[in-house]
Design a protein around this nucleic acid. Structure first.
Length: 377
DNA sequence: TATTCGTGGAA
DNA sequence: TTTCCAAGAAT
């Protein structure tokens, strides 16, 4: 069609990466790959794509799984609402589309977790519909190509770029056109140090010709992350023949929604060990007499996009842990069944620390008879 | 429209 | 060590 699309599609055929989702037009697999790749690099998402396709052959398999299992498979990838919406979307397709992925853009858009970008990607790649995608890559490429001064994600900038793309997209191979533009953005027209000499568009790119690739795309100023202070209490209780602990499923409307964590005391500022073990919430949950502090961690910094978390973990031996806990939300689980539950990376990393594994695997002193505990900084 | 939702790799 | 930011969507 246009010279523009010929250039990028030829480049794409020569230099595209060989990725598993590029060997299929199965809507389930394309859908999955697009959700995984939202705000996520290929290298980070690859293993998750393979794990999901290995576990779930069809949309129905996914729909029949539990939310816990889906979140556990997603564990560590971040932005967990993607996993919840993927799961919900699968159930939606079973209920509303008889298990068959819809083949029209407007219907695809009705699926939970699928927005303008993902709907266009699936429509073009799977069903040859001439829907241009507009993601971060495409915005960057086009903002440079046409020196678009509007901020990323501004309505005005998006409108300009969509107008361009509708004129440029190759209706015979819209999927290749879209993927070529995104791959170019990911591999050549990168945010920092774009490789303009390798770019098939450099002889007509306005920003390159003006020596201003660094000025585009125009970005918005971002807010500084706010601090939060977490103290996790890991209670251990021996109920022959197993050790148990307490978990809490996080609720919607905050970070890590629907993931599990240990009983949490969140405070306005960082508290010392004594302030925690004397904290009203701690005393209310575990009492004063029947607990023994086995270990408390140093301060662990965990950086999220909009929050900086400062966390300490406290491992305690506590008789009758669950009896004083609030009835709602807390569950008692066997220590050796923690792998059934999805945890945020912060907690998963703590639990997989060799020193912590040692402590948790050597609890024989605490099987009911009085033993001697150790604690350390 | 602005904000919020993770994580890890690179500079 | 800090900052940036990567195939967005929901609210």
């Amino acid at each position: 069609m246009s010279e523009f699309s010929d250039k990028i599609i030829n480049w794409y055929h020569l230099f595209k990466r060989d990725l598993p989702w590029r060997q299929t037009r199965n809507p389930f697999h394309i859908w999955l790959s697009e959700i995984i790749l939202q705000q996520t690099r290929v290298n980070q998402g690859l293993d998750y794509f393979l794990a999901f396709t290995h576990r779930f052959s069809t949309i129905e398999d996914l729909a029949l799984a539990s939310e816990n299992e889906v979140l556990r498979l997603w564990q560590g990838l971040g932005y967990y609402s993607r996993a919840r919406f993927l799961h919900e979307g699968a159930r939606q397709i079973i209920a509303n589309y008889d298990g068959k992925f819809p083949e029209e853009y407007d219907k695809i858009l009705t699926i939970k977790g699928i927005g303008e970008y993902t709907a266009a990607a699936i429509a073009s790649i799977c069903f040859d519909l001439p829907c241009p995608v507009l993601d971060g890559n495409v915005y960057r490429v086009m903002a440079r190509y046409r020196r678009i001064p509007d901020k990323v994600n501004s309505t005005k900038g998006k409108k300009k770029i969509y107008t361009c793309l509708h004129a440029l997209i190759d209706p015979r191979q819209p999927g290749n056109f879209n993927q070529a533009l995104m791959e170019l953005g990911a591999m050549v027209c990168t945010p920092r140090n774009p490789q303009c000499m390798d770019c098939p568009l450099h002889d007509s790119c306005e920003a390159f010709l003006a020596g201003e690739t660094g000025e585009y795309p125009v970005k918005t100023i971002k807010k500084v992350p706010q601090n939060r202070y977490f103290q996790y209490i890991i209670p251990l209780e021996y109920l022959a023949p197993d050790f148990y602990t307490i978990l809490y499923k996080r609720s919607l409307g905050d970070i890590w929604a629907r993931l599990f964590e240990f009983p949490l005391i969140e405070t306005e500022k960082e508290l010392s060990r004594d302030e925690i073990t004397q904290h009203p919430v701690f005393l209310n949950w575990f009492g004063q007499d029947k607990t023994r502090l086995l270990y408390f961690s140093h301060r662990i910094k965990h950086q999220l996009t909009h929050r900086t978390l400062y966390t300490r973990f406290y491992i305690i031996i506590s008789a009758n842990s669950l009896s004083n806990m609030p009835k709602h939300g807390f569950i008692r689980v066997k220590m050796n069944e923690l792998t059934h539950y999805p945890f945020p990376r912060l907690i998963e990393s703590f639990l997989s620390n060799p020193h912590i594994i040692n402590i948790l695997s050597d609890l024989s002193n605490f099987t009911g008879a009085s033993g001697s505990g150790k604690k350390q900084e």
